[in-house]
Design a binder for these strands. Structure first.
Lengths: 77, 77
DNA sequence: AAAGAGTAGGGTAATTGGGGCT
DNA sequence: TCTGTCCCAATTACCCTACTCT
């Protein structure tokens, strides 16, 4: 998988838990934990099984010293 | 360079306290102290327990004669 | 439709960071 | 003052299984 810049909708391709885990250098399980705990915004696939993440949200966390990326919007629920 | 794979966001993977400790040949605890004291920039995981560091920041410190790497926002993507 | 790959969930052990002390 | 080690609590990592996605 290479660099697929944008999705057909013109947005950046969503990241998988494993990809986000790679960024933070943590276990993929930890990412799903953060998502489940509402610590990071996640998008659930219609099947309800998978978590996907917006690159912008991840970058926001990386830019925050506290890792507290303001959850601008409450998680879907 | 480029032996180190880039993360899905196009950045280098973050380093753990232990990895940074290895670089400086000190105890990991010392690294977290530096981070807590603001001597080196650190990114906390959303879980709030772990510290992660940008390779670029560490390199900056290593390149600085006094080890005084400005804590400025080095990266602006 | 079937098979293979990938990912989330559960449970438990290990690691990490905070505070205190040397 | 700064660093390393001890104890403790919370988070994180690794095991296996079940279900989804391609």
């Amino acid at each position: 998988m290479s660099i697929m810049p944008l999705s057909p909708l013109g947005e950046e391709r969503l990241l998988t838990s494993e990809e986000v885990a790679t960024v933070f250098h943590v276990d993929p399980k930890t990412i799903t934990r953060w998502a489940a705990a509402g610590l990071i915004r996640a998008i659930r696939t219609p099947g309800g099984r998978l978590f996907r993440y917006r690159p912008a949200d991840i970058r926001a966390i990386l830019s925050s010293p506290d890792g507290q990326a303001e959850v601008v919007e409450a998680v879907s629920a």
